[in-house]
Design a protein around this nucleic acid. Structure first.
Lengths: 211, 211
DNA sequence: CGGCCCATTGACAGGCATCAAGTCCGGTGG
DNA sequence: CCACCGGACTTGATGCCTGTCAATGGGCCG
């Protein structure tokens, strides 16, 4: 579902910076001075509603560019989900690279797509009713971006984050996972490991089929 | 809430094309060959879920640019909500103008913001629970983009469209409007006219306050 | 005038949020 | 090595919200 990770517009040999899980990369509302390129690990975009409700607007993976200067300020806070590595590009250098690439390829860089697409897709996912449908659509959209470890998916997302992404509660996410487990669609040998046993059925449920 | 309408990157004197209400400007999945600039009227972005559910991903107003080549194909269908006028820019000319503007102003054009921002905002709005909160947040986000007629807002959106935008049903939207009317927050002298009687309360409810 | 689409209202059931309690697991310190 | 502890996950009970179905009303246009 995800478009393949786009190459950096900047041929940079910069050393990647590390960040621990939970660390903030940039804050919603801050001026866009840098574009962050994820080298490895997973990050999340977080937005706080006026009444304090926390929403995860997107998950980002290795290769994604985050914090594009699409406005004057960042529209969401970026936090590390796992420990990760990133490279920071100054807005100006990133812009120049964009112009060059724009002129050469005749269209906007895939990197813009890479940030805007997940946000767009989340809107579509949470716009559908039925939590199970949302969970499956979500899984379908990220499975091919999760690293594999001996045949299993590395699944470091907490149900709290997934709930905040799917506009529901951790309890409901847990129940949804249980349904999928009991139906033999997935299995989770460990808390942070997942195995998709029936990809076709997962896809079908995401498309509205009954469980 | 909306950023002010951005000027066109192209100093074009082209004649604006008309479109009737309901008319399709471009289809989801088609190759992005043109950028559409709305001169007047209202348009909607529509996306059909795999199971046939129709979602309105955004409403667009005069001055907005729609169909940016952020990917190879349009990610949503654009339809006229009211009769409207638009100007079509070829992708290549639009791109050149973007490059120029990018170089001069040192950042991405506001026009990208103008399309991506409503999409982002919808995600935040429908990610909140409580239909009344969503309705109010929606109203707050569009009131200053609707044209006024002798002190009243011109409100040509059907409850069907609003429901498809807010990820709910027309009946629920209707009940929400009734609550707001009975609470004196809004009034609707006619089907397509609205008066915000208590903007502060509208804002408060959108922020999570009880009615 | 008639037909059609949209808005409205009511009744009802079901899904999901909420609250509460208990379990599991990894990490930490003795 | 083991006990402890905190956070995440799990599970159950309950009530409300809201989706669904059905019927009516109302405005617009042909």
């Amino acid at each position: 579902m995800y478009s393949p990770a786009s190459r950096s517009p900047i041929q940079s040999l910069a050393i990647a910076m590390p960040a621990d899980a939970g660390e903030v990369l940039f804050l919603e509302g801050d001026a866009c001075e840098h574009v962050y390129e994820l080298r490895d690990g997973i990050a999340r975009g977080v937005s706080i509603s006026p009444d304090g409700e926390r929403q995860v607007t997107a998950f980002f993976f290795a290769g994604d560019q985050i914090g594009l200067p699409v406005a004057h300020t960042y529209r969401f806070t970026a936090e590390a989900v796992t420990s990760l590595h990133y490279v920071r590009h100054s807005r100006h250098r990133w812009n120049e690279a964009l112009i060059t690439s724009c002129r050469d390829e005749g269209r906007l860089l895939p990197s813009i797509c890479a940030e805007q697409d997940p946000i767009f897709r989340r809107g579509i996912i949470i716009g559908r009713n039925g939590v199970l449908v949302r969970i499956c659509a979500f899984l379908v959209s990220i499975v091919d971006r999760l690293p594999q470890i001996d045949g299993q998916l590395d699944f470091p997302l907490t149900q709290l984050d997934i709930a905040a992404y799917l506009a529901t509660t951790p309890e409901t996410v847990c129940r949804g996972f249980r349904q999928l487990r009991e139906a033999g669609v997935i299995s989770m040998p460990r808390r942070d490991r997942m195995l998709i046993r029936a990809p076709a059925r997962l896809q079908a449920i995401a498309s509205g089929a009954a469980i």
